[in-house]
Design a protein around this nucleic acid. Structure first.
Lengths: 244, 244
DNA sequence: ACTGGCATTCTGGTATACCACGATACCGTC
DNA sequence: GACGGTATCGTGGTATACCAGAATGCCAGT
């Protein structure tokens, strides 16, 4: 997984943090525990639709098919349950989360409520300034859009949002919004077809970034909220009242 | 633990959800797994300061002293780590989270950003109406304040906030805010002394609830934000620049 | 044909033994 | 005396065996 839980407060040797200026930067391959790798595998499989909503997830089966024991599988499932991608129904097994109307409603309401705050904080923290990481994601999205690579495009668009979360400088908001984004991806994947609203999405992303780089927190905040709400409307209209 | 992860989507028998009108309501005692009980014990111990920040938490020790095996202890620790009360430093053990300035800063920023949204949603959802649960907590707080029972008073005040989270009708915001509230309690406990600002707190609570019951989302939202920010200022001033 | 009880089966939950690896302290060497 | 190597220890990580309990389906009784 990307955001490792390891905090490492020990003495020197900041394996994660920003290296000292001029320091020799050697990418340390992190072994990552089996739990984490299993978590990552399952998360990806759920997000890309390989494991559809309602799909039963049996500890023993997964353990066997992934070539590990139950223990790491179990931990991964617990973590997925906590993030909302998986539901643990007491004594009737674990399964990929089922989607209902209220989930979508609450999900987008939460995102629309919180994401603008993160955008505002990012602006407040940096003032009028280039947000290189976000801009890079945006440019890449543009390139991928013209190239027609929709899968990678989705990734780039999501990265755009995540870079802003990160720029907010608030670990709690960042983690929470990442969680909500995962769920958004999950819901969107389940309701596939998602006819390309990519151009509109790109335009809104550009507008948000422009407001951020202009150092206008209020405008950036408002645009971010509208962006999320429009996405929600689109998704709901695509899903229709489709059962499950 | 209070908020069980059990989702139970099976057929009828909504053991959790609101029971059908006129249905016979019998409180089903939930056995709760050992993991959950361990989680609950540790959470309480951390929140009330029995386990202070930085205190090492060794799986084997805890297992022995709690009379269970490592497995449930391990799961509880993982969960606590995810909620931020515990830090897992790779290969140097687990310990109660250490507190630094940026933690407090980010914590209160996040709460100030999100909690007003929940308050607004609660008002929007219910319109001008009595919020009985919140009011009850508020009244109880008043009673306990005059009785001088500060410990119980703290609980009542926290319950006031949680009732509002719940009234927002948004599971994501509710869970996230509960997590932030736990961390707030944790930080506040660590910085004890917390000279009684109870009267001011009560007054602000009353103002928020009044705005809610009057059906004024904007006002309620604003008051909630100011409430959190003032609490943050108070805590920071109490902590001073106290190391750790 | 329907209903109530019972055995089976499948699930997650727990305990235990063992493994891998960083931290530490000791000791020899330069 | 300071440094570097090395053995030991303690930690979380993993595998495995076993337990408990609900869902399920069969079967007898009505």
């Amino acid at each position: 997984m990307s955001r490792s839980r390891v905090t490492r407060t020990t003495s020197a040797a900041p394996l994660n943090g920003a290296p000292a200026a001029g320091a020799l930067v050697i990418p340390v391959e992190q072994p990552a525990s089996r739990s984490d790798r299993v978590y990552d595998s399952l998360r990806r499989a759920i997000l890309d639709g390989t494991l559809p909503p309602g799909r039963p997830l049996v500890e023993r089966e997964l353990a066997e098919s992934l070539g590990v024991s139950k223990t790491p599988v179990r931990e991964a499932l617990k973590k997925l349950a906590l993030s909302g991608l998986v539901e643990m129904n007491s004594y009737s097994g674990v399964s990929v989360r089922r989607i209902d109307g209220s989930l979508i409603e609450e999900l987008y309401t939460a995102r629309a409520g919180v994401e603008p705050t993160a955008v505002r904080l990012a602006v407040v923290a940096y003032g009028p300034a280039r947000h290189d990481a976000a801009r890079q994601a945006l440019d890449e999205a543009q390139r991928l859009a013209t190239a027609g690579e929709t899968a990678a495009l989705g990734l780039a668009n999501r990265r755009f949002h995540r870079e802003i979360y990160s720029a907010s400088g608030n670990r709690f908001l960042c983690e929470f919004l990442n969680q909500l984004q995962d769920l958004t991806t999950f819901v969107a994947t389940a309701g596939w077809r998602l006819k390309a609203t990519f151009e509109q999405e790109a335009e809104e992303h550009r507008a948000i970034l422009a407001a951020m780089e202009a150092g206008d927190p209020a405008l950036a905040e408002r645009l971010a909220g509208e962006h999320i709400r429009r996405a929600a409307r689109t998704l709901v209209s695509v899903l229709g009242e489709q059962p499950r």
